[in-house]
Design a protein around this nucleic acid. Structure first.
Lengths: 278, 278
DNA sequence: GCTTGGATATCGAAC
DNA sequence: GTTCGATGTCCAAGC
């Protein structure tokens, strides 16, 4: 464990230590008054101010102000760091390819420089993701519906891979799309794409059900589901159970006859079970 | 401009300076060996290791390893920071509400503590966004198509606000969806939602055209557009012109003898003849 | 406060 | 390498 710290160093001192730290593979922080110019997928400039700059040994670059979780400027991993002193300023440049991008940081003054030996585990153990929700359902498919039988995960279609493909108690094909949090219109569209792909695959005469599984759904998404004859089941990704206070509110009276008189409608799409607690 | 730095401080020393720095509204960095526990929208644990922790005066919290642009753990702005010493460890806790979330960082040892007075501009001047693409088109609507007339931006519909609403030379309503980068299936679905909303609004007998404007499109998205009778125009958000080497590759104009014998001509705005069930 | 969609999104997995 | 969807996405604007 080593750390190197310079206080109000000259640019030459900073340059020297910077190059050594990059060589060592340290994580570097530079606090100072600087301007920032970015050119790549977009273009940006940032006027002078005191910021915290972080250079990681994997090439990541972060420029942080005193606000927000998101850096005001950055470079993802894979970029190359190079420092130089020009016109009385310290320039730190990060460049990468695919796409070609350049981030230039010009320091008027460096208040503090540190080189840190960052080691140790970086693998997070996380729980409550969409994958956890999927495992809950595969463990107990009746969470989706009594009689549901999962047949395949990541089943391919012309619209892309489906989260869970299976069939209901009657043998009707079902597409299940999982979301770990409250869903909006885009999730409803995504499910609709998969259902349409199966219709093209099987022919329109074959009934296909689409079920969205998530803790809750917005009103507009519920409308979209209903318009497309899709269904919704409320489940929490962490517990695999219906979210709190939903047990009594389920099966809110589905509307009587839908005007869609195809004859092959698989089941009532009671998508408005949620709609609550917006 | 002031900075406070401690090297290998005791937990008590760190605690003292930490509380003072939070009070002052400084940006704080703590480098040390720690574990991290998060509980909120999901749950996570991170085993011991040396990491760089950043506490911002707006409540943002970042835990960085030596890799990736994204922090391994974090808290967005608005959380409250509190530090304490327990069981020989320094605990830094960030809590927030809506949703309820807690981030706990337990330091076994602090290698370096810094409190920084981060000031100065934080407003980025950025160019090349979707908004810039929109301005290019509003300046010169023929970029989309000769005769195109924008009538409204952010026009509301039951499917949400459309980027640009207008009409073509024949007076046929057009929805234009803008993307600053290469688009995939979701953008095609989004455009389709808007077109469907206008069909419901105007009645299926009224033709409506949907046009996606982006630098390029993936194969699958192109298929989706075609299936739904939607169109694509290639434009670069920064220049407002067709992307490089696209001059010769005609966008809308298909090669003379297309094997597609559907009679599917986008210009005829044939969405209503298709009667898509979606 | 919730909803919606953009972002220099980043990231990872499948192809 | 590209494509695609998840993310504790974050974030701003609108309501």
């Amino acid at each position: 464990m080593h750390t190197t710290t310079l206080h109000r160093p000259t640019h030459r001192e900073t340059l020297w230590e910077l190059e050594a730290a990059i060589e060592r593979g340290d994580l570097i922080t530079v606090f100072g008054r600087c301007t920032v110019d970015y050119d790549g997928r977009a273009t940006s400039t940032l006027g002078p101010g005191n910021r915290l700059v972080i250079l990681k040994p994997d090439g990541s670059t972060l420029v942080h102000t005193d606000e927000k979780r998101t850096p005001v400027n950055w470079q993802p991993p894979g970029c190359e760091h190079h420092a130089s002193v020009r016109d009385g300023r310290l320039r730190v440049r990060g460049t990468r390819t695919t796409p070609d991008e350049t981030l230039d940081i010009h320091f008027e003054q460096v208040h503090q420089f540190s080189a840190l030996d960052v080691t140790g585990g970086r693998d997070l153990d996380l729980y409550g993701s969409e994958e956890d929700l999927r495992e809950h359902i595969l463990d107990d498919p009746s969470l989706v519906e009594s009689g549901f039988t999962p047949l395949e995960t990541e089943r391919e279609s012309t619209a892309g891979p489906m989260d869970i493909y299976g069939e209901d108690a009657e043998g009707v094909p079902m597409v299940v799309e999982l979301k770990r949090r409250r869903v909006g219109p885009s999730a409803a569209s995504q499910l609709q794409r998969y259902v349409e792909a199966l219709h093209r695959e099987f022919g329109d005469s074959v009934a296909v059900r689409g079920v969205l599984v998530a803790p809750s759904v917005t009103d507009r998404a519920a409308d979209l589901l209903k318009e497309n004859g899709l269904e919704f089941v409320a489940l929490d990704p962490a517990t695999g159970e219906p979210p709190e206070a939903t047990e009594a509110s389920e099966e809110v009276e589905p509307p009587e006859a839908s005007e869609d008189a195809d004859g092959d409608e698989p089941k009532e799409a009671d998508s408005e079970t949620d709609g609550s607690d917006g």
